[in-house]
Amino acid sequence: MGWLNAIVQGLLLGGLYALFATGLSLMFGVMRIVNLAHGDLAVVASFLALALVSGTGLPLWVVMVVTVPLFALLGYLTQRVLLQRSLGAGPLATLLVTFGLSIVLQNILLEVFSADTRTLDGGSFATASFHLTDSTSVGYLSLTTFLLACAALAGIQVFLSRTGLGRMLRASADDRETASLMGADSRHVYGIATAIAFATVALAGLMFAMRSSFDPSIGPSRLIFAFEAVVIGGLGSLWGTLLGGMVLGVAQSLSAQVDPALTLLAGHLIFLAVLAFRPQGLLAGRAA
């Protein structure tokens, strides 16, 4: 592996981080909720897909098409039933509720699927690659993930800026009370935002699962990646999240070139450096 290859792999990995972080960014941008169960939701999606593939024998792409809308529905319900209530119960409540949810999800997965490490078999597609140069090869899976991430971000961007519901969403994010006066049902709007967030996190969870192994307790450490991508890119900026994910991915893959044990540390240090010298993030702004 050369340095150029490391950078290319890092950029593609960044796409996955961005896809994963989009939901976190959206939920914070619209409802001011930091969803501490975000990482665990991705892991739940991975396990769900695993159970569906081995249980029904359906091909993976069918399972994906089923899982993602299912998660969107789940997101809408979670917001309406659980999170909406916590929004009214004080600023601490949302954090505690999502944290509690994270503990519950992790341990249910542990009971149901045991602590074993699993992988989701993506077939030949997951391992195939093509050569860019002699030393640089690009996997179809990472490239697809990256393109999916871009498509998801672009889709959300168009939804927010072009549709009526998206306008209501932005209005509710800016000033919930005034938006309600103008006829926006903030509870429905919040439900939609959470549905989008859950759908993207499910998609990211499936991509993670095909790429690397997972176990029930891995959610929190993945949440940290998403969080870092959001903060590095700039709070509330959709395309900043993509940039943040790519910075994080490149930092991790370059440091892995030096010493594989440094991978996580390098990502965290980049995050802390951004926090220290550019706390508003690389692309400060509000697109969501």
Binding site: L82, L92, L96, V97, G100, I103, N107, E111
Partner: peptide
């Protein structure tokens, strides 16, 4: 085992709400 943590998490969520 883990069910205890599941219960703990659920109690925490309920208390927060």
């Amino acid at each position: 085992g883990s069910w205890y943590l599941v219960l703990l998490g659920a109690v925490g969520v309920a208390a927060a709400l």
